[in-house]
Amino acid sequence: MSEPLLAFLYFFILLTAVVAVLLDDLLSSFISLSVTGVLMATVFALFRAPDVALTQAIINSGLVTSLFLVAYSQTQRTPSPAGECRECPFWLRWPGAALVSSLFAAVLFRGLYVLSGDRIPGSTSAHYLSQTLEETGALNVVAAILLDYRAFDTLGETTVIFTAVFGISLLLSGGKYVHSGHGLSFIVKRGMALLTPFILLYAASILFLGHLTPGGGFQGGSVFATVAILICVVYGTNFEAARISPKSKETFEAGGAMLFVFIGLLGIAWGGGFLANLSGPFPAGTPGSLFSGGNMLLLNLAVGMKVGAGLSSIFYTMIKILELEDDSWPS
């Protein structure tokens, strides 16, 4: 990997970030932020982190931007007064903030500078790189870490997703929901109809082959959620709700979490410990085939169900307010 390429990418990351910060138009700044996300995904790929690059591109550049668009369309914006705010204390204006941030950057860089030098991976990482095939039967080391060595943390992460979904539906609850039958134009609908099976296939392949190639439950689930969002946008929420009702989304989400825990409990029942993989009842299989890696296939499925259903129900909850009558909002 060449340094000039990296420098080029870093420069553009910073440039798009600055643009995102300084622009007044919110739409443009979020698109610029999305570009920053894509550039960062490229950098991640250059740093030989394909899983992370995939996740960054899907979630940070794609999903977050679409959530922003929903939030942006739901808010009433009075045009903000130009110039600085008059009643703010003097240190809050941009020179003060710039001073504090640059000081922060200097302190941070000074601390990080000590870390530059020859990178020697720690003993844990060396263990993971060398022993993954024997101990888990999977080929994707990162997936093995997430779903075998540190599967309990992944359970916690799904709890975080659940908390976010729960919080959002709590915040945006109440009010009537009016289905919208509109969608986009006919050409878009036909095009989408042609494209959807392939997107779903892609999502399924990322999800189910996560233990062999870069990917996994999070990435696959997010692409499934993206499909749901696309259908919402292209065909209208009426269509989408008929196909995948909100109730079934909740069931999927809960089902994913319960599947995860159930697999963990199977490990206990076998005598191996919670979320035990090869020391539980799960076979290692031949490395490189679909049914290998012990319980990682099932765990990927569980995580994918959870993430996909969770993210699409977040979108659905935020969309729901879009079609309310203004005076039926509970204030």
Partner: peptide, 26 residues
């Protein structure tokens, strides 16, 4: 191979970051 452990952390961080941004929007 490169160090895979921070990759796992980063994956988790990306997902959790998306969740907290969604909550912020709400």
């Amino acid at each position: 191979g490169v160090d895979p452990l921070p990759h796992a952390f980063t994956l988790t961080a990306i997902v959790i970051g998306a969740c907290d941004i969604a909550l912020a929007f709400a």
